[in-house]
Amino acid sequence: MGSAPDELEVSLWRGGEAGRYEAYRVPLKENQTVLDLVTWIQRYLDPTLSYRFACRVGMCGSCAMTVDGRPRWTCRTLVAKILKGRRLEIGPLQNLPVIKDLAADMRPFFEKWQRAKGVFAPSQTRREAPAKIPPQSALRIAADAAIECINCGICYAACDSVRWNRDYLGPAALNRAWTLLNDARDKGNAERLRAVSGKDGCHNCHSHQSCERHCPKALNPTASIAGLKRKTLEAYLTGRIAG
């Protein structure tokens, strides 16, 4: 299928797991994002196309898809910046089940946040005075570096360790666990260290850095996971967790 100079051939994944790519022609416009292409197809060519987005400004993390083989946040990815030639292929995020078309099922991803104890465990109640965390404290600085995650699942889709072990907790959940481990107000660390050091925990990571390479928020889950590896080893050597 050829395309006119001001047109693009966009192949979209259609169907569930056993779907296929289908090609569409979309007019090229200035400052067009990948999400704009998908939306145009849904508005003008096929209203049954399923995909997910909400904020369109890089905050909600819901619009991630596989674009020409790489996971990307589509609302903030300009077509002009990534286009090579006149074709683009857009599919659902990898390493997750496909619900339909471009919508991946994020449940396994969020279940792992729970399994990694990525939930704040407060050590105080609202009746006590707010905790004072000095911005320059080492813990605060470590947590800060990892805290801006928008739960988009891009790192998870780029991680080959997830591909090889579907039960591996993955970069995002472990990165979250790392922020809580450095949160002076949290009291869940004993349990958290046990959760992240298990068979499917941080020691599955091979430090490929694919997660860091693709994270749209420029976070570094590889560094967070390295921190977890050190902390879990320390906890093991001091007898706080069993082998």
């Binding site: 192949s11 596989t66 020409d68 083989g69 990898q94 889709a157 080959d160 694919s210 390479r213």
Partner: peptide, 18 residues
Amino acid sequence: MSARTLGHRRDPLWLAAL
């Protein structure tokens, strides 16, 4: 899926791991 789904492997650090 398509042959182009493994684009994240086109990276020097991935090659280093390999």
